Computed example of a mutant assay.
Amino acid sequence: MVILYILENSTMSITVNNLVTSDLAKRDTDPQDRRYITISLTGSGHKLYESIEERMSQYFEKIFERIPVDKKYQVLESMQYFLRLLNKFAERSICPKLVKDSSEIIEELLESDCKGTGMDE
């Protein structure tokens, strides 16, 4: 699950500066309007992101494996409810796509992990 944080502009600027200095992100100025800057990951940034995503997936899979079978559906359903609430607030936030992606992951888990357990009805 992705945790959504709203950061102050100064905190965001410092974070972006550190990522750029570490060659994990780059800034590109819009040629049409120099007031707009696009920030994107570099090749190194993408590699690090993918590594973190993989480790987080493994971490949450280990946790999920420890949930008793008869409780998995209840946990996933509660997470889905929580993410729906986050979506309502995320519509006004700076990164609604993150919450949407998490919701899709929960949907996939509900569809796959509960089939054949009697909880998929």
Results as ranks from 00 to 15, higher is better:
1 M>A: 02
2 V>I: 15
4 L>G: 02
4 L>A: 07
6 I>K: 14
7 L>S: 10
8 E>A: 15
8 E>K: 15
10 S>H: 13
11 T>Q: 13
13 S>M: 09
13 S>W: 02
14 I>T: 13
15 T>P: 01
15 T>D: 01
15 T>R: 10
16 V>E: 00
17 N>M: 04
18 N>F: 05
18 N>H: 09
19 L>E: 03
21 T>F: 07
21 T>Y: 04
22 S>T: 06
23 D>P: 00
26 K>M: 00
27 R>K: 14
28 D>K: 07
28 D>F: 00
31 P>A: 13
31 P>R: 10
33 D>T: 07
36 Y>A: 03
36 Y>I: 12
37 I>L: 05
38 T>K: 13
39 I>M: 05
39 I>T: 09
40 S>D: 02
41 L>R: 03
42 T>G: 01
43 G>Y: 03
43 G>D: 14
43 G>I: 02
43 G>M: 00
44 S>N: 15
45 G>T: 06
45 G>N: 01
46 H>V: 08
47 K>Q: 06
48 L>V: 09
48 L>Q: 02
49 Y>V: 00
49 Y>I: 00
52 I>W: 08
53 E>G: 03
55 R>G: 13
55 R>N: 15
56 M>D: 11
56 M>G: 05
56 M>H: 12
56 M>P: 04
57 S>P: 00
58 Q>N: 14
59 Y>F: 15
59 Y>Q: 13
60 F>R: 13
60 F>M: 15
63 I>F: 08
64 F>N: 06
65 E>S: 12
66 R>A: 10
67 I>P: 07
68 P>T: 02
72 K>R: 15
73 Y>T: 05
74 Q>M: 11
75 V>R: 13
75 V>E: 14
75 V>F: 15
75 V>N: 11
75 V>C: 11
76 L>F: 07
79 M>H: 07
80 Q>L: 10
81 Y>E: 14
81 Y>H: 13
81 Y>W: 07
82 F>H: 08
83 L>G: 01
83 L>I: 15
83 L>P: 01
84 R>D: 07
85 L>G: 05
85 L>R: 04
87 N>Q: 14
87 N>S: 05
87 N>I: 02
88 K>L: 11
89 F>I: 11
91 E>H: 08
93 S>D: 09
93 S>K: 01
93 S>T: 03
94 I>Q: 08
94 I>N: 12
97 K>A: 03
99 V>A: 15
102 S>L: 01
102 S>V: 00
104 E>A: 10
104 E>Q: 12
107 E>I: 09
108 E>K: 12
108 E>W: 06
109 L>D: 03
110 L>H: 09
110 L>R: 15
111 E>S: 12
111 E>Q: 14
113 D>C: 11
114 C>L: 15
115 K>D: 11
115 K>F: 11
116 G>E: 12
116 G>C: 10
116 G>N: 08
116 G>I: 09
119 M>V: 03
120 D>Q: 05
121 E>C: 06
